[in-house]
């Protein structure tokens, strides 16, 4: 699933480790999510949205829209 994590991190000048610390996950998790290798669970997606103070759909691209 595509997402805007890298851009959002860059806007805040956060490293992957900074974001990982805020989410209480490993840096590898952030890397896997950011590169679209791993789709986070709904609770983690909400946590990510909370950290960036955005809605989930402002961070993650709806897979249906991705295909269109």
């Amino acid at each position: 699933m595509k997402n805007r994590l890298k851009v959002l991190r860059a806007e805040r000048d956060w490293s992957q480790q900074d974001l990982a610390d805020r989410l209480d996950v490993s840096r590898q998790s952030v890397n896997a999510i950011e590169k679209g290798r791993y789709d986070p669970s709904l609770p983690l997606a909400f946590k990510i949205a909370d950290v960036f103070d955005l809605a989930i759909e402002q961070i993650f691209t709806n897979p249906r829209l991705e295909r269109e």
């Binding site: 996950v25 896997a32 791993y38 986070p40």
Partner: peptide, 8 residues
């Protein structure tokens, strides 16, 4: 494990 990706 707290980290769900690590769990996977």
């Amino acid at each position: 494990l707290r980290d769900e990706y690590r769990r996977l």
